[in-house]
Amino acid sequence: MTGISEQEFVRTCVRLTGFTEYDLYGTGMAGLFLGTARDQVGEDRFAVFWAALKKALDDPQGLKTLTPTHLEAARALTYLWYTGAWPRLAPAAHAELRRQQANTEFMAAPAAYTEGLVWRTFHGHPAGAKAPGFGTWAAKPPDVPATGEAQEEQAEEPAGAYRVGMEEPVALDEVPHDLLPAFRASRDIAPSEVPTARAPEADGAAQQQKEVRA
């Protein structure tokens, strides 16, 4: 398969996703996702992308060094691991890749959905699968890794290698609006098409909230 072994694929994706090799193999989806990504990006272009991605991951500047189109492909691949779906790409990247496929989000397979990693980021389970048992929702969930813990574990990585367009790590108590989704204008808008939230205005609910807190 374009000379990329499943092992190489998984090892590289560990760095894209922040999940361990064990977690990625544990989905049982590595082969399907490699095939899906290759099909979507195009066999030749995927090989070029893959080489660029590996180079960027070894660069102290990290993923910032990718071209916009390769950056979008890296995002799409990460999205695939997290959700089981191949997303809609930025139309500019779609055009540059000269993709034959429709630029719409689709689920790679029914089990790809249930193996999505996003649920594991907060110790959840996919809606409609891997049910945890009667009454378990009443128990306090385990905490997600605290900021310090996570940073410690990535101490070996160069600072900022995983950030694009931002100097400082994201502050979790003041989450920037443009990393969060806006209200979904209609249900036919796929998750990867939901725009980012607008900057809050100083009036209305926001202001009211400040007053009450003060």
């Binding site: 560990v14 977690d23 594991r120 110790h123 378990t136 128990a139 385990p142 905490d143």
Partner: peptide
Amino acid sequence: TMQKREQFA
């Protein structure tokens, strides 16, 4: 108490 199932990469 719910067990924490995952580890961080």
